[in-house]
C-alpha cells in the first residue's frame, strides 16, 4: 500500500562550522501517522526539528514538509502546529481569547473561529471554562487545551515536544486519546521526547544518535530486533553500543 507522505527527508545534512549536527538523515513520515522522534541530548534532534518546522535551513539534502521544501519556511509554517511543555498558552488570557488568538495567527476569520471554538469546548466538555483565565486551570486541562489549540487550524502536521511529561496518568490517557483521534482525522503527529514510555504509544519510532538515525521502525519491531523488553532498554542498548564503539 503506497501511503501519502507528508514529510520527506533525504540526505539531510546540517553543519555548524565543522560540527555535523545532522548527518545524512533520510526518512519519510506518512499522513495520519504518530511518529516518535527520540534521542539523547545533543543527538541532533532539536536541529532536525527546527529544520522541519521551517526555523532553520539545511546545509544540504532534500526536505519536503507538507509538500514544501525547506526554502519556503512561510508555507511550511502555515501548515504545521506546534506544542511544547514550555510554551503553550497565555496564562493571562481566557480560554476563548487564546483560541481566537491562535486562530487569528493562522489567518482564520472570527466567523470560522467562533463555531469551531464552541465545538471544540463541547467535545472536550470544557464549556464551563470558556471565559476562565488559562492560568487558573489545573495543569491537566491546560495541557489538553494546548494540544487542541495546536491543531485548531487543521494543520497537516503537529509537532509535540514532550507533550505529556509530568501529567497525571488519567490526563495522560485522555491526552493520548486526543492524539489518536487527531491522527485518525489524517493529521500527522510528530512527537519528540526523552521519555521512552511515551515512545511506546507511537506508530513508528526513530532513534537518533550522534547526528544519525540509528533505528526506525514500529516499537514492537524494534523491540524484537534488539531483543529488548521496552523501548527504554532498546534505547540504552543503542546508546551504549555507540559509546563503546566510539
Amino acid at each position: 500500500m503506497e501511503r501519502e507522505k507528508v514529510i520527506e527527508v533525504k540526505d539531510l545534512v546540517k553543519k555548524f562550522g565543522s560540527f555535523v549536527a545532522n548527518d545524512h538523515l533520510t526518512f519519510d513520515v506518512y499522513k495520519g501517522e504518530i511518529f516518535g522522534f527520540l534521542g539523547a541530548n545533543g543527538a541532533g534532534k532539536t536541529t532536525a526539528i527546527r529544520i522541519l518546522c521551517g526555523l532553520s535551513r539545511p546545509t544540504s539534502g532534500k526536505v519536503l514538509v507538507a509538500g514544501f521544501d525547506a526554502n519556503h519556511p512561510e508555507e511550511i509554517k502555515k501548515r504545521i502546529g506546534y506544542m511544547s511543555q514550555r510554551f503553550s498558552l497565555y496564562n493571562d488570557l481566557t480560554v476563548k481569547d487564546n483560541i481566537e488568538l491562535y486562530g487569528g495567527i493562522y489567518g482564520m476569520t472570527m466567523k470560522e473561529i467562533r463555531p469551531r471554538t464552541e465545538r471544540l469546548l463541547a467535545k472536550l466538555s470544557f464549556n464551563q471554562y470558556g471565559d476562565t483565565l488559562i492560568g487558573s486551570l489545573p495543569p491537566g486541562i491546560k495541557q489538553k487545551l494546548a494540544f487542541a489549540v495546536a491543531v485548531f487550524h487543521d494543520p497537516e502536521i503537529v509537532f509535540l515536544d514532550e507533550p505529556t511529561s509530568g501529567v497525571d496518568p488519567i490526563t495522560r490517557r485522555q491526552f493520548w486519546e486526543m492524539i489518536y483521534e487527531t491522527a485518525s482525522r489524517g493529521i500527522t503527529v510528530f512527537v519528540t521526547t526523552h521519555y521512552m514510555d511515551e515512545a511506546e504509544y507511537c506508530d513508528r519510532v526513530t532513534i537518533m544518535n550522534e547526528g544519525m538515525i540509528v533505528a526506525l521502525d514500529t516499537p514492537s519491531a524494534l523491540r524484537e530486533k534488539y531483543n529488548a523488553s521496552s523501548i527504554e532498554e532498546l534505547f540504552l542498548k543503542i546508546a551504549r553500543q555507540k559509546t563503546e564503539t566510539a
Binding site: A40, N41, S165, H194, Y195, M196, E232, F235, L236
Partner: peptide, 10 residues
C-alpha cells in the same frame, strides 16, 4: 531526572 535524556537518567 526531569528533562534529562534516557541515558543520563539511567
Amino acid at each position: 531526572t526531569t528533562g534529562v535524556d534516557a541515558v543520563s537518567r539511567t
